[in-house]
Amino acid sequence: MAQIELKDVGLSYFTLKQETEALRDINLSIKHGEFISIVGPSGCGKSTLLSLVSGMLKPTKGKVLIDGQEVSGTSPKVGYMLQHDHLFEWRDVLNNLLVGAEIRRMDRGKAKQKALELLERYGLGEFARHGPSQLSGGMRQRVALIRTLVAEPDILLLDEPFSALDYQTRLTLSEEVFHIIKDQGKTAVLVTHDLSEAISMADRVMVMSKRPSTISTVHTILFEEGDNLSPWKKREAGRYNHFFNAIWKELEEHVIPTV
């Protein structure tokens, strides 16, 4: 059974000035443990789609289901990593990591242990007691990811988690994140502007069209070199360029409409 399902979902934003139809007729089904990337032109509604799955937005049309149950509000099963890190500057790194656990009234001792463990693994062990302003952009982003993981979600929604990073950190971090997510058997939906990231991390890449957007194509990323390749290996695999070009071309059509 699919873990995440969207059935004929549509979403419009209403403001006093206007109505913005962001999403239209979205149908989507994601299996347990699957890694999905979503790419699309800026402003097409990728963040909106994640907000729908997280339960922070209600669809104006259609249904969103998680594990067969209709989503009505946020759930502890879902961890949402927002486009910006939003660390609280009045808390040190460790206490920032415990925000989710605190809100959900999880066992503080356990959460703390997990937070420290993950900090250590991500090479941030010595920064537990630092303030967020003492961290670099990449470090902040890693802290934000750990904050999401400490709350122990089954499903991870990642909204451009690496966009603020330099290329090198980005490659290493995406490799790390990929392995963590796969090891822990979590389902992940990654929104990104970086096609190479989208292809190398995901089992399937979904391309969204311009607003009112829908999912225009789904590319299943399979390589002749075998299954379970790491992002690094996938970038070197034979059909990588084929996928890259196909998605690139498709996006170009959405950005520059051909009349």
Binding site: M56, G73, T74, P76, L82, H86, G100, I103, R104, A151
Partner: peptide, 10 residues
């Protein structure tokens, strides 16, 4: 968005 982050944890 800080409040949105809080909201995402319910």
């Amino acid at each position: 968005t800080k409040l949105k982050l809080m909201g995402s944890f319910g």
